[in-house]
Structures are given as C-alpha cells and as structure tokens.
C-alpha cells in the first residue's frame, strides 16, 4: 500500500493506477466465478449444489474481518499521530467492511434458507456477525452526531478500537464454546476443519484472496475520492477568502 503514503499529492491520487494486485484480484475473481460454478464438487445430502455458496459466503467474512482490522489499525495510527488522512482510511475501511458483512449475512441467509430451512436460525455465528454489523453501524451514528471534525475523528477512533476489542470474544471465542449448525463447530470454527476436498480448496483459497483484494481496492478508490473532495473544498475555500 505504498500509494497511501502520499497524503495530499493530487497528481498521484487522481490517476488510478492498474497495479499488479488489482489485475490479480480480477483474474482470481473471474476464476472463482467460472471455477466455482463449473468445477466438480462433492455430492452431499441436503447441501447438494448449494455447497458452491462456500466460494461466495465464507470469503465475505474473511474480507469483513480484514477490513475491520485494517480500520482499527488505522484508528490506532490516528491516535498515535493525529492527521485527517488516517481518519479517512479508517472510515473507508470500516465502510467496506460493513458492505462485506452485509453481503455475508445476506448470502448466508440465502444459503441457510435452502439447507437449514429458515433464513435466520439464531446460530451463534449469525448472532456474532449481526453484532459486528451493529457495532460498526453505531460507529457511523457516533460520527454523525459529532460536529467538530477533529473531535469526531478522535472519539470515533477510540470507539473503533474499543468496539473491535470487545468484539473479539464475541466472534472468535464464544462461537467455539457453543454448539452451532455451521460446519466444523464444537472445535475450531475456521476453515481447516471443513471437510473440503482437494477440488474445492483449489477454488476456495483463490476466492478468499480475490475477494479481500477487491475489498482493499474498493476502499482505496473511496479514500482517493474523499481526498479529492477535501482538496476541492480546500481550493474553493481559498478562492472565496
């Protein structure tokens, strides 16, 4: 993310560069969609063909956690060295994380409707995900209710870190204690215990990387947009005064 280091360089930030990782993201996602729909999957009872949702549903959670984690890390950097730039990065990663979380919930509900019978099952992981979304919605409500921009950045950074810390037990520890209808529960809920066969892994891992890269891409585009908007405001202010 070398590009992000240039706070006010409009020339650099106006030009959208086609870096290698963006090309990689496109290629991986094209592969995910074609491979995900066409390649051989294990025939399991009940799950049947819906097992293909794995390539779209599960990477959303990986993406969400990565986005929220990045957002929190930039909140820490903001508190250490206040500057509007870190605040913008933190907000936009939280925004992207919310989109991923929302898509994860929706794809999960569609999948659950076919395999578990109802879209919402009160499963501990569903609830944990809902709480994660609530926390970041509250984050945006908090930002909306503070007028001073410096205070808004600082208080929301504090809430971001605090809420992320409070979220850790909820989405990483409690689901391991309680039984769940998700695969691999009653132990490690990560993907290692999924009984993925070799074919599925060949699509699943690239899918995870592809979706995460796409998330970073969305966030950087939005950050660039915000920087340009700020720059325009600044120029207009200078012109009028």
């Amino acid at each position: 993310m070398a590009k992000l280091k240039n706070p006010r360089g409009l020339e650099d930030s106006q030009v959208m560069k086609m870096s290698y990782w963006k090309i990689l993201s496109i290629l991986l996602l094209v592969y995910t969609v074609t491979g995900g729909f066409l390649m051989e999957v294990p025939r399991l009872a009940i799950v049947n063909e819906t097992i293909r949702s794995l390539y779209f549903h599960v990477p959303m959670w990986f993406g969400m956690v990565v986005m929220f984690l990045t957002s929190t890390l930039y909140a820490v950097r903001y508190l250490k060295k206040p500057g509007a730039y870190f605040d913008i990065i933190s907000v936009e990663f939280a925004n992207t994380g919310l989109i991923f979380g929302f898509l994860g919930i929706v794809t999960g509900m569609i999948w659950a409707n076919y395999t578990w019978g109802t879209p919402w099952h009160g499963d501990p992981k569903q609830n944990g995900a809902a709480v994660a979304l609530l926390i970041y919605c509250a984050y945006f409500v908090l930002r909306g209710s503070l007028e001073n921009s410096e205070q808004r950045a600082r208080l929301s950074a504090v809430y971001n870190i605090f809420a992320f810390a409070a979220m850790i037990p909820l989405i990483f520890i409690i689901p391991r204690l309680t039984s769940s209808m998700h695969p691999g529960s009653g132990g490690n809920p990560g993907f290692n215990t999924y009984d993925l066969d070799r074919n599925m892994r060949m699509v699943f891992y690239p899918a995870v990387i592809g979706w995460i890269l796409l998330g970073v891409w969305i966030a950087t585009v939005r950050i660039r947009l915000r920087n340009i908007e700020d720059k325009i405001l600044e120029l207009e202010y200078e012109k009028n005064h």
Partner: peptide, 13 residues
C-alpha cells in the same frame, strides 16, 4: 441515545 446505541452491542458478550 448515543450511549444506548454504543453500549448495547459492546455488552452483548
């Protein structure tokens, strides 16, 4: 209101 919104998700655990 903000207090309620901020605190409920945090204390759920």
């Amino acid at each position: 209101v903000i207090m309620a919104v901020l605190s409920f998700p945090v204390v759920i655990g």
